[in-house]
Design a protein around this nucleic acid. Structure first.
Lengths: 148, 148
DNA sequence: TTCGTTGCAAACCTTTTGCACTACG
DNA sequence: CGTAGTGCAAAAGGTTTGCAACGAA
């Protein structure tokens, strides 16, 4: 989804839920669409600050959660404990693999894994709603330069 | 691993690392082996309190981390944000599926998924160290009684 | 005008840490 | 005895919340 389209859909989303279209909400959406990287709530707060977008930390958190509910963003837990967000691009769902040394994050998608997850859930009588898969290891450049 | 064996191995582990075998450490190990359920640090603190095991919250956290390092326990992140622990029984590695309504936790293991994770990591040039897979959904009894 | 939203700071929750005291080896 | 471990309370890190002021509809 392109920035303009995202913004339009976000406004619609807000109106459908009878929520107000505020400058802060739009600014945060725009900022989220300006990076192709994963970002934390704190980073977003910093960007807003730098860009005079005037959103308080509380509003940043509230808006990120709102965008999560509307599936404008997805998030996963970094090993630090903080949540990392990324905008939904209309891309297929993907999972993440983190380098434990340099912190690099790569995305991957594997249909076979998804199908097997669904199968396992069914086998256990669960109706699958969501899943979180995070792989951790050493990336190519980090493992080429280490002994440990 | 049975309680007695766990305790013996834990004492060995401590001695190998030149750490002291304290009453608190043994009590916490015993308590961990008294449940077949997943437990949080706070729960363990409560048990210790009730049982006069006299371990402070700080000691509980420190000891749980120690047992994690020694692979006496494994842990994963509950959706609440708190870590859930379970004793290592010598069982094979397994993943978890949580019911979003009643909180029930089931374990499962799927070799095919593990292999595919390894493949994906290799494909991306990563040397896989660990992974976390958590499925979330509605369990059989919760999905039979709901409309949502 | 009205009610949802914001900003601030305080509260929260989980986990870690500094330091004086305790106890294992 | 000497040093690692413990308990306490305070700090830390991330996120949520209560409430008065603000602003979109």
């Amino acid at each position: 989804m392109k920035p303009a389209a995202a913004r339009r859909r976000f406004e619609l989303f807000l109106k459908e839920r009878k929520l107000r279209v505020t400058q802060q909400r739009l600014d945060i959406l725009d900022l989220a669409w300006e990076t192709h990287d994963h970002f934390s709530a704190e980073q977003m707060f910093g960007w807003a600050r730098v860009r005079n977008a005037h959103a308080s930390r509380a509003t940043v958190y509230r808006t990120l959660n709102l965008m999560l509910e509307g599936r404008f963003l997805s998030s996963f837990e970094a090993s630090s404990g903080a949540a990392l967000f990324e905008h939904a691009l209309g891309h297929n769902h993907h999972d993440h693999i983190l380098c434990l040394k340099c912190g690099k994050i790569e995305e991957f998608h594997c249909d076979a894994i998804e199908k097997l997850q669904e199968q396992e859930a069914q086998r256990l009588g669960f109706q699958l709603v969501d899943h979180a898969l995070i792989l951790e290891g050493h990336c190519a450049s980090c493992s080429s330069t280490d002994e440990l």
